[in-house]
């Protein structure tokens, strides 16, 4: 009888402990995005050269959308890689687009000059585009396919291999099953 009761105790406590132990494998601060596979929220961006750009106008092309800020070290770390990838893909119906958030215009321009960035970039001073995309870390990169659907999201610095692999997938319209993760900074 006592043994049966003891087993009941174990049956109640065991799963609870397992659940708490499971907690160790999670990072409570990461926010999974519900946007993967959904249409990319439209926006109009004023670029640093003064022209404006509408996301809808890029329909039919694959868009590599990168949120960044000049004060974020991982953004600096990935900047050269992004520019190199742009040079490789710019003739293949791929558009690279950078959106600078939580930054001053002056710092942002210095950043672009320092890394010799040639793909279009603009600022989102009110943070509305960032909220539209559910941004919570920096940098964050979204891959948008020809139909305007988000195929992949990467939080944190992205590497050459991921960029090329995910661009190829986006060109073929394949939606990734998971988010990517690199070194990131919490935005302010």
């Amino acid at each position: 009888m006592a043994w049966r009761r003891f087993l009941i105790v174990l049956a109640v406590v065991g799963p609870l402990l397992a659940l708490l132990a499971y907690g160790f494998t999670r990072n409570p601060r990461e926010i999974p995005s519900p946007l993967r596979g959904k249409p990319a929220p439209p926006f109009t961006l004023t670029l640093f050269d003064g022209s404006t750009l509408r996301l809808e106008d890029l329909r039919g092309k694959v868009v590599f959308l990168n949120f960044w800020a000049s004060w974020c070290p991982p953004c600096r770390a990935e900047a050269r890689t992004l520019e190199a990838a742009w040079q490789k893909y710019k003739d293949r119906e791929v558009v690279f687009l950078g959106i600078d958030i939580q930054d001053t215009e002056e710092d942002a321009r210095t950043f672009l000059r320092e890394f010799g960035i040639t793909y279009p970039n603009g600022r989102d001073p009110s943070g509305k585009i960032a909220i539209d995309y559910g941004v919570w870390g920096l940098p964050e990169t979204f891959f948008i396919d020809r139909e305007g659907r988000i195929t992949y999201k990467h939080v944190g610095g992205i590497g050459w291999q991921s960029i090329t692999a995910k661009l190829e997938e986006a060109l073929r319209g394949i939606v990734s099953s998971q988010e990517g993760k690199g070194d990131y900074r919490q935005i302010r």
């Binding site: 009888m1 006592a2 009761r5 003891f6 105790v9 406590v13 402990l17 708490l20």
Partner: peptide, 18 residues
């Protein structure tokens, strides 16, 4: 330790329940 305390204490309680 939490597991030890809960299982041990309630185990003891179960043993003495009679």
């Amino acid at each position: 330790f939490l597991g030890l305390v809960v299982v041990g204490s309630f185990g003891l309680l179960a043993w003495r329940a009679d």
